[in-house]
């Protein structure tokens, strides 16, 4: 019988060890992937075959099933990044850095897709691909912020130092996004009459709600799976950098 002399650590501290985190979460990857795939199949089946056209928007309502989840993710991913940024600054949690970095390009792509599907939805409903409507405009600004953060990550050589600086910027952005949203709403109502499409507009019958919810969960799980995988990759990349540095030191001495 051996006596455990190692100090007791909470899961919070143990998960801070990147290798431990990878070991713990790797078994989650495949179930998550499978679940995501099943939900996408079900969601797409509902979206195309098992849901009627909307009495007002007709078949274009089917665009909503990919538009709304992407629009949600564009904000959800920023939320994840902001929470991770807090983790970096307050607790100096090493995984928070990794989570922040892995989330940025994913968020940028989901935001771009939200804009893309929004434009394709706008064409038949509003008659134009782009409307300087409050929501589309603030999503565009959000995309710029994401791209700025991605550019910032790429500009730094030392990723450990980069994390804290980018965390500051991410949090400044998080404070600013509601202000941007408010100002853009103020601005668009000043310049044009309220748009045709309103959030409280057409009531959603259950036949539309079901595919929407399934796609919603499917996209969120897709993000979580990709985020986890990208975090594992980032942890490995850091190990690569460390090893390369060690090899260079070994060669020079």
């Amino acid at each position: 019988m051996s006596i455990d002399t190692a100090p007791k650590q909470s899961w919070w501290n143990r998960i801070a060890h990147p290798g431990q985190f990878v070991a713990w979460t790797r078994p989650l990857l495949w179930p998550l992937t499978a679940l995501t795939a099943v939900l996408f199949v079900v969601g797409l089946w509902f979206a195309f075959f098992a849901s009627p056209e909307d009495y007002q928007m007709g078949d274009t309502v089917r665009i909503m099933y990919v538009h709304v989840p992407n629009a949600w993710l564009s904000q959800f991913v920023y939320g994840i990044m902001a929470v991770s940024a807090l983790g970096t600054l307050v607790w100096r949690h090493p995984l928070a850095d990794v989570s922040m970095k892995a989330a940025a390009p994913l968020g940028a792509l989901f935001t771009a897709l939200a804009l893309f599907t929004g434009a394709l939805w706008g064409r038949p409903t509003w008659g134009t691909f782009w409307e300087w409507d409050g929501r589309m405009t603030s999503t565009l600004v959000l995309l710029f912020i994401y791209l700025g953060i991605v550019a910032l990550w790429r500009a730094f050589d030392d990723q450990l130092r980069a994390a804290r600086i980018i965390a500051v910027f991410t949090l400044v952005g998080a404070i600013n996004i509601p202000i941007i949203k408010f100002s853009v709403d103020w601005w668009s109502t000043l310049h044009q009459p309220a748009s045709v499409f309103r959030a409280d507009g057409p009531r959603m019958p259950g036949s539309i709600l079901t595919p929407l919810m399934v796609m919603f969960v499917a996209f969120t799980l897709l993000f979580l799976t990709l985020h986890l995988k990208a975090m594992h990759t980032e942890i490995k990349r850091r190990r690569v950098v460390t090893l390369q540095r060690k090899a260079a030191q070994g060669a020079s001495s």
Partner: peptide, 27 residues
Amino acid sequence: AVTVSIRRGGLIAPILIAPLSIPVLIF
């Protein structure tokens, strides 16, 4: 401040500042 330690930060700073400044321009 965010870009000060990047050697060519002068190029990236405007990209970061512009989205933040949109409310200022609007109002």
